[in-house]
Write a protein that binds this DNA or RNA. Structure first.
Lengths: 226, 226
DNA sequence: GGGATGCTTCGACTACGATCGAAGTATGAA
DNA sequence: TTCATACTTCGATCGTAGTCGAAGCATCCC
């Protein structure tokens, strides 16, 4: 009895609809203010404030003060991974809050998973990187090969900077729409940033969806052939 | 707003301490009766009954009637995997219900994860199988190699029977104590059953811990060298 | 300074869900 | 049949957590 870690604590944190909405909104990767999160959850600012402090106490969120705003975001990569995993499970049980709407296909095609690319595009990129041996599965985690390293540097990603951080560079994340792995970690983040900086892809407002431009689509397909 | 699957539903199911205790108890893999689960959770039978019907409605549990008993167990492999994943997250946040006690080391050494072996032994077995190319990572999932197939048949496992089932034979599961992968799926289950049938290992009562005998220890090390 | 805006804290209300006693159903044993 | 066990359903109670109004800080702008 009473063995192991306390899953009830996290469960209850996620279990409240208002908090779940906030977390889902934060899965889009942007840091959001308390007011924004309140409207996302459909509650008043006071209530949101109380929820946010609980989520922060539980280690799911961190806040940054900037002027008179407080920006909240998911505390670490692990939080995003855990949430995506839960979403996958919920989706597999048919626990959907909405009948699949017009937005759904866009989300399945390409979306933000906290800070990296997910959906069909995310999986395609991952598969391509594996097939071309630029990343490889090493025991339990993912590693960048020398070939992969020079490749991403050619793209303009600062490998040294990635390496300096304590965060893992590569890591897998389970996709709830595709039910397949895609690339997370600081490299996953850097790649998504790159696509956006280059103007290949754009985030849709108030959504996790990512829209690729015609050029971006072409460039992406060339970079990551099927 | 309101995108994606409803994580609040599962969250709230897991979020109640009584239900979390029941689920944790069921992670030991045995099917338990309502009365047993009630004592595990420290509540009366009536309350337990209400919780159990909720968990069943949520698709986390299934029940089997046997005489006047009702045996409850986790609905599918996915449920166990999801719970172990949550435990891993909770453990990483230091959310423990108890100060690490005397039982803790035993659990870390070898324990049941729903229906397969986890802990140090589970990870060792997994690593060994990979190193000897008896299972291999194939894209996103695990596959038994021809060498692995004849190997497990030599051990007395009915490969044809495993293959017939719709369940995946091999699959990875994230270990919350080791933070590494170990082998789940029907093969994982068959192997654990084998160890117990051969008398190499024994389940401890009312615990997820598994105790290997001296002989079992030796046999295990020979079968799965480091 | 004065007046927004953004957010937190306090206090009170409310509703939902966990809880258990009591009664009801089903299975098994004698 | 009768009694015992295993469990469910009903009904009532009770606590707690979510909710918001009002007031209190903090920051920024003019």
């Amino acid at each position: 009895m009473k063995e192991g870690p306390d899953i009830a604590l996290i469960g209850s944190l996620i279990g409240d609809p208002a908090r779940a909405n906030m977390l889902t909104a934060l899965m889009a990767g942007r840091a959001l203010t308390a007011t924004e999160l309140a409207t996302h959850a459909g509650i008043t600012l006071q209530t949101a404030s109380s929820h946010l402090s609980k989520l922060e106490a539980g280690g799911l969120l961190t806040q940054r003060k900037q002027g008179r705003h407080r920006y909240f975001q998911l505390a670490e990569d692990e939080v995003g991974l855990m949430l995506e995993n839960l979403m996958g499970f919920a989706a597999s049980r048919g626990m959907n809050r909405h009948r699949p709407g017009p937005k759904d296909p866009a989300l399945r095609k390409a979306r933000v998973c906290y800070n990296h690319l997910a959906g069909d595009y995310g999986v395609r990129m991952y598969d391509s990187l594996i097939a071309e041996k630029q990343i490889e599965v090493k025991g339990d985690d993912l590693a960048l090969t020398p070939a992969g390293q020079s490749r991403i540097e050619a793209l303009g990603i600062d490998y040294a900077a990635l390496k300096k951080s304590r965060r893992p560079i590569c890591r897998t994340c389970l996709d709830w729409s595709e039910r397949r792995s895609h690339l997370a970690g600081s490299l996953g983040e850097a790649l998504l940033t790159l696509f956006i900086d280059k103007g290949w892809a754009k985030r849709e407002a108030n959504s996790r969806a990512i829209r690729f431009t015609a050029n971006g689509d072409k460039a992406f397909s060339e970079l990551f052939p099927q």
